[in-house]
């Protein structure tokens, strides 16, 4: 059976501005979405796999999706949806068309500055491993990949993921190949049309961002303003530098929870 590689892309039309409606002509896919497609096409060539592009997008996006797939994707699943939907709902709908995929590739940002949470919901729904912020592939094995992942402050780490996995790549990772004229004129991708199902009516109650209540803090002690600033910022307290702890994953999680509790972030 031919393996299938899934790619999720998000189509963003121009945003309406005062007095001007949104204009589909200025619609785009993010550079990272395009990079995800290019990387998946390369991987498909290595594995003799098929590439399936899946997108929840308005009807107006169809021609753009077809043009994107002309780069070499074999299948396009267009889940038609006109309004906004929650990330969890979008991921649930995407997952219906990605269950048979060994890997799913996403861009790590969308042009509408979305929350970036769809890949996480998708990984949860599919029970797949997830890695995000990927800038390179350092090794390829049969059912696993060693991925170079960007961390803060210019640092990098290598993570190994096993199929099935969901990967979010950065736009710098690859440039999408140009579609041939023949495939632009006569698109060959098999188009599967679907509609966004109504979200589950099961209500989990209202959610809102956590806003801690203001609390009274004792004024810092000190003779001078400088002393008080030092006291308020704990500048005079002994600094605890970063520590390296090597633990099993379960113990590491427990350790993090304990430290956060100790520092007052968790109660």
């Amino acid at each position: 059976m031919t393996p299938i590689i899934g790619v999720c892309v998000k189509w963003i039309g121009s945003q309406p501005t005062s007095g001007h409606e949104a204009d589909a002509r200025f619609a785009q896919f993010s550079a990272s979405d395009q990079a995800a497609l290019e990387v998946s096409l390369q991987r498909a060539e290595q594995q003799s796999a098929r590439v399936r592009v899946v997108s929840v997008a308005p009807i107006a996006a169809r021609s753009h999706l077809v043009a994107l797939c002309a780069s070499g994707a074999h299948e396009l699943v267009h889940i038609a949806a006109e309004g906004q939907s929650s990330s969890a709902h979008v991921a649930h709908e995407l997952a219906q068309h990605l269950r048979d995929c060994a890997s799913v590739w996403c861009g790590d940002y969308s042009l509408d500055r979305g929350s970036g949470s769809v890949p996480a919901f998708l990984a949860s729904t599919l029970g797949a491993q997830q890695a995000l912020g990927i800038v390179g592939i350092s090794a390829t094995n049969n059912n696993s990949l060693d991925l170079l992942r960007r961390l803060d402050a210019g640092r990098r780490e290598i993570v190994r993921v096993m199929e099935p996995f969901i990967i979010s790549v950065e736009g710098s990772m690859a440039t999408l190949r140009r579609a041939s004229l023949a495939s632009t004129l006569r698109p060959t991708a098999n188009i599967i049309e679907a509609s966004l199902a109504e979200p589950s009516t099961l209500s989990l109650g209202d959610f809102s961002p956590f806003r801690p209540r203001p609390r009274t803090v004792k004024a810092p002690a000190g003779e001078t303003a400088l002393d008080r600033i030092k006291a308020a910022t704990s500048a005079n307290s002994p600094q605890k530098h970063s520590e390296i702890v090597t633990l099993a994953p379960e113990d590491a999680a427990q350790y993090i929870v304990e430290r956060l509790t100790e520092w007052g972030y968790l109660s």
């Binding site: 190949r177 140009r178 579609a179 041939s180 004229l181 023949a182 632009t184």
Partner: peptide, 9 residues
């Protein structure tokens, strides 16, 4: 000739 791969028409 066009600038696309296989771009002759």
């Amino acid at each position: 000739h066009t600038d696309r791969p296989d771009g002759d028409l």
